[in-house]
């Protein structure tokens, strides 16, 4: 309980930090504009003529997140290290993992809020037809888990540097790998010369492969575990990196 209240205190401060700067508002506006633009203009929401959000809306999420999530996560540790507040934070009577989890949860909740604000698209599709809302809910859940996985990767890169820009770029590269490993053109290229087991191994690391099930409304525990294990592994690595800095 004590641990939990420490995590809550950290998360509360972190969330406050988002909203006390323009970052939160800029992020939400851009996220909503982009998802609207891609759904209606590029995704062809009306032209498809289906009461479904899978292709016009959710298909774009792995790509939006590629740039937007590292922008949310880049400051988490880089800023603490640059300003020196990390020295205050980590000498408070809390454990480092409480700080790591608290910061991660705050950002993840923030992403949940941004995602939830896309609700008008759900209303629109319900008004125009009768979609399977269970599928939509599952896809939202998958999208949020995927955002969490990207975010946790950004935590690692943020802990590695005191420069937010470096953190951003490195985490975009990491996340790009998570996408491309299952991006159909890459998979086709790979299966041209690689053994099937190798292709399977590579694609099993991809968020696209695992997000696919959610988009179809299938809640496969393996997909959930995939995203959660990326999160846990990344947060653990963040802890190792932070300890490494302090050990000198």
């Amino acid at each position: 309980m004590n641990a939990w209240s420490n995590i809550k205190t950290i998360a509360k401060r972190e969330l406050g930090a988002y909203f006390s700067s323009p970052l939160a508002y800029v992020f939400i506006v851009i996220f909503l504009l982009l998802s609207g633009f891609f759904t209606f203009m590029v995704g062809g929401f009306f032209e498809i003529g289906q009461a479904s959000l899978a292709h016009p809306f959710f298909d774009w999420h792995p790509w939006f997140y590629l740039f937007l999530v590292p922008a949310v996560g880049m400051r988490l540790w880089a800023e603490e290290r640059r300003v020196g507040t990390i020295e205050l934070l980590l000498t408070m009577p809390i454990t480092p993992w409480q700080a790591i989890v608290g910061k991660f949860l705050a950002s993840w909740l923030f992403l949940a809020l941004a995602l939830a604000l896309t609700f008008p698209i759900v209303i629109t599709v319900n008004y125009l037809g009768s979609p399977d809302n269970g599928v939509i809910l599952a896809a939202y859940l998958g999208s949020w888990l995927m955002a969490g996985a990207y975010l946790a990767v950004s935590c690692i890169t943020s802990a590695m540097t005191r420069t937010q820009v470096v953190s951003f770029i490195v985490s975009v590269v990491f996340c790009l790998f998570l996408i491309l490993a299952g991006f159909p053109p890459v998979v086709r290229l790979l299966s041209g010369w690689a053994q099937p087991w190798l292709v399977d191994t590579v694609t099993s690391f991809s968020v696209i492969t695992h997000f696919d099930g959610f988009q179809k409304g299938v809640l496969d525990s393996r997909d959930v575990i995939f995203f959660l294990s990326i999160i846990v592994f990344s947060l653990f690595t963040t802890g190792v990196i932070l300890r490494g800095h302090r050990a000198g």
Partner: peptide, 26 residues
């Protein structure tokens, strides 16, 4: 502990910062 150069969260108000420090101290 007062670290060198007295770091503090620049995006918070003084009241908010002290409130945070108090809460994390339980």
């Amino acid at each position: 502990y007062l670290p060198e150069n007295a770091p503090a969260y620049t995006d918070m108000t003084v009241a908010g910062f002290l409130n945070f420090a108090a809460e994390i101290r339980g």
